[in-house]
Amino acid sequence: MSEATAAGRNGDFIVFDKVDKRFGRNVVLDDLSFSVGSGERVTLIGPSGSGKTTILRLLMTLTKPDGGTIKVDRDYLYHEERDGRLVPASEGHIRKVRSRITMVFQHFNLFPNMRVLRNVTEAPIHVLGKSKDEAEARGRELLEMVGLGDKLNAYPSQLSGGQQQRVGIARALAVDPDVLLLDEVTSALDPELAAEVLDVLRDLARTTDMTMLLVTHAMKFARDVSHRVLMFNEGNIIEDGTPEKIFNEPENDRTRTFLRSVIDES
């Protein structure tokens, strides 16, 4: 990986430094180092089990690394600096750093007993401390943006899968994140509904300067929205480049084999 590529577009914003993650004897991430620049959109591709989703879960603090460090905008995520040395971070420190990150999951995970607008406003009110009026005004704006301005009072069960995922996107944006993580957000949808969601995300990519990490098998979408693509295999990055480079002229045999299999399936 070149020094310029590793540094990202606008300086390091997310930095993984020699990160290890194991589940029992299974090594998921192996001494992994990479960085993402501020405002950069990076897509992680590779076979199942290669560590892509684990990276997102580490950033969301849904699982902890077994070694190495992770930084978000110069702040360590799982460590703090005290007296010139790194020590394990307090829960308060982890929550503070993690509050700048949000994630749209593969499965929608909406609160079934809450109407759409309340699903979007729950975190801004109870986590960020926004007033109900402020949160609802922003929630309406976001739901309008994702094409659901007429569904404010619907329950999730009254929506299609694509509509539920668009609510999930609005909910993620409602906490005003610096980093948006997208984990196979269309894999549970049929092609028509997936296209609705991807169109929303394309618009979002065009109109926001958020840092974004995406895990997807939708290669056309990855080509459209990414500044960089990282190819993973067995817990490591084996190729890193622009979408044009990775999709048109991959250098690694494993990348070529993977892309052929994904394109054949689509």
Rank of each mutant, 00 (worst) to 15 (best):
F221Q: 10
D209Y: 00
A222E: 11
T207F: 01
M219V: 08
L204F: 12
T211C: 04
T208R: 05
T186L: 07
L201E: 07
V229Y: 13
M212D: 01
P191F: 06
E192F: 02
F221K: 11
T211P: 02
M210R: 14
A188M: 07
P191G: 07
T216L: 08
E196F: 04
D224I: 04
L213I: 15
D203P: 00
L201R: 04
E196S: 13
A194D: 03
L230T: 10
L189F: 08
T207R: 15
S226Y: 12
S226K: 12
T216E: 06
A195N: 14
T208V: 03
V200E: 11
L198W: 04
L214Y: 01
M231H: 11
T208M: 03
M212C: 03
L213F: 02
M212I: 13
D224T: 13
V200Y: 08
H217Q: 13
R206G: 05
M231E: 10
T216N: 08
P191S: 08
M219Q: 12
S226M: 12
A222I: 10
M219C: 05
H227E: 11
V225E: 12
M212V: 15
D203M: 10
T207A: 06
M212F: 01
V200I: 11
E196P: 03
M212A: 05
D199N: 15
V225S: 12
R228M: 13
V215F: 02
T216H: 06
A188D: 06
S226A: 15
K220L: 03
L204V: 03
D190L: 05
D209E: 14
V215P: 04
V200A: 14
T207Y: 01
P191D: 07
A222T: 09
S187N: 08
L204Y: 05
F221S: 10
